[in-house]
Simulated assay, not measured.
Amino acid sequence: MKLGDRVKFRKSLVKTGDSVIFGYMTEDQEKELEDKGYIELVRWQVKDHQKELEGILCGKRRITISNTLEYDDNPYRSEEGLVSVDSVEETVYLVACDLRGFYRVKEEDLEVRHD
């Protein structure tokens, strides 16, 4: 695959909108931190589109799919809080179907169109 190729896909990644702020955690986040000792923060999730989409391959990026956050009470930090101890990254392709933006698509979900 190279830039400018016409591609088809049915799945893409979308932001979850989830976040964790130490002083303002939800009850579920507090419970997960207490039970497991960490919080698994999922930043991007797979979206299945009802119909097949077509577009042009415009770029390639490496994005963080999820983070593992643990409590840190390091005395050398100015405040207590959560720190990222692990992350899962994936390479995605940027696909433009129109002028509104890009879809982030995994390589295995792309199919090159031959017209």
Rank of each mutant, 00 (worst) to 15 (best):
Y76C: 10
S78P: 10
K36D: 15
C58P: 13
E54F: 06
V83M: 04
E108P: 15
K51T: 07
L82F: 07
L82V: 06
D48W: 03
Q29H: 05
R62A: 08
F9P: 00
L69W: 00
S19W: 15
L53Q: 10
L94G: 14
S78K: 15
E79R: 12
R62L: 12
F22P: 03
L57Q: 04
V7W: 03
H49C: 02
E30V: 03
K106W: 12
S66C: 08
M1W: 02
V46D: 10
Y93E: 02
Q50V: 06
I56W: 00
K36H: 12
F22I: 08
E108C: 08
K11Y: 10
Y103F: 06
V46P: 10
R62W: 14
T26L: 09
V112Y: 05
I21E: 04
E111S: 10
H49R: 01
V112G: 01
V83L: 05
V112R: 12
V85G: 03
G4F: 08
Y24F: 14
F102V: 05
V112W: 03
E40D: 15
A96P: 00
E27V: 14
R100A: 12
F102P: 02
T26W: 14
L13W: 11
K60G: 07
L99I: 06
M25F: 05
R10L: 08
K47E: 08
T26H: 12
S12R: 05
E27H: 00
E80N: 07
L41S: 00
V20F: 02
D109G: 07
H114S: 12
E89F: 09
V92I: 10
E107I: 09
E30C: 04
R10C: 09
D48N: 09
S84V: 13
Y38I: 01
E108F: 09
R10I: 13
K2P: 05
G23W: 02
L41Y: 03
G81P: 07
P75S: 10
V95C: 03
K106E: 03
E34F: 08
T64L: 09
T68D: 08
K11W: 03
K106F: 11
F22C: 04
G23M: 02
T91P: 00
E107N: 03
I65C: 06
E32M: 09
E30N: 06
E54G: 02
K60N: 14
G59F: 00
E80I: 15
S19G: 07
L94R: 06
Q50G: 09
G37H: 01
D18C: 02
L53R: 11
L82P: 12
I39L: 10
F22D: 05
E40V: 07
I56R: 13
G17V: 13
E90S: 13
Q45N: 10
E79P: 00
V92M: 11
R62I: 14
S87G: 05
K2F: 00
E54K: 12
V92P: 15
K47H: 11
F9W: 01
Y38F: 04
W44L: 12
V95F: 01
G59I: 01
S12Q: 07
A96L: 10
V95S: 01
I63H: 06
Y93W: 05
E30R: 07
I39H: 06
R10V: 13
S12E: 13
Y24V: 06
E27R: 02
V83E: 09
